[in-house]
Amino acid sequence: MDVRWDAVVEDKRFWSEPVRAAPVVQAGEAIAPLRVHLWLFGSLADAIAERPLTLEFQGPFAVDDVIAELGRRCGPEFLSKLTTSGGGPVRHCRVYLDGEEIEDTAATARIGKACAQMEMILLTAAEGG
């Protein structure tokens, strides 16, 4: 009896990611500049005087681009709160684009209109540093 452990299971598709429909782009909307209304909450909120902060991008952008822009505007101290030394957001940062959570912050944001709502908040808790 020497069944290969990794060969026992045949169907590996059970956990494949569900397909998400791409946002519908209204005619005339998907044109540059793309505007993002950025809402910073909790410990991030005091970095900016206005809420939301409006950012404009001339073409497709990723969350990482938004964070980089925030760094330029708010300075390195703010950026150190939000990002690791590798440049990506800290693991307890939650980002939502039009209500959908964004996990891959390097991926191009999928927006269906010229003005998107982006929210960021740091979630901390006793469990974990």
Binding site: S80, K81, T84, S85, R91, H92, R94, L123, T124, A125, A126, E127, G128, G129
Partner: peptide, 22 residues
């Protein structure tokens, strides 16, 4: 996870901002 910091990957140590030094 119960907390928002997952147990792995391990967080990057920094000068503490948390009073618990986690």
């Amino acid at each position: 996870w119960m907390g928002y910091h997952f147990p792995y990957p391990i967080g990057e140590p920094r000068m503490p901002q948390n009073a618990g030094l986690q």
